[in-house]
Amino acid sequence: MQGVASRLLVPSTAKKGDVIEVKTIIMHPMDSGYSKDQNGKTIPREIIETFSAAYNGKQVFKMQLQPSISSNPFVSFFMKAEQSGTLELTWVDQDGSVYKNQAQITVT
């Protein structure tokens, strides 16, 4: 499973009360279980099942993904900047693998 490379973009600084956008993308085939390989064999389902974001340990976003989500899932959502801290993203693969990415945000 090579699906561990991810990108995360958030502003590194924000004013207290600002609503900031979190954008992220991760390399993953999101095999739906409905497509076939070149030899006509069904490619088994292999997807990321959940994606969540926690700020200073508190969940701020959660998404349950189904096979209808495209390969290399991109997600954007918003969060309110209240205090400086760490944003941690977690993707959980159906095979149990956990992929993470994080960023620091300084709130002034």
Binding site: Q66, I69, S70, F74, S76
Partner: peptide
């Protein structure tokens, strides 16, 4: 689609704005 579900998103006041973007098949 073969399966009806696409995604479920959980939000809270911590988001400040109820908007989410993603890509689907």
């Amino acid at each position: 689609n073969p399966l009806p579900g696409v995604a479920i998103v959980d939000l809270s006041p911590a988001n400040g704005k109820a908007e989410v973007q993603f890509r689907m098949r």
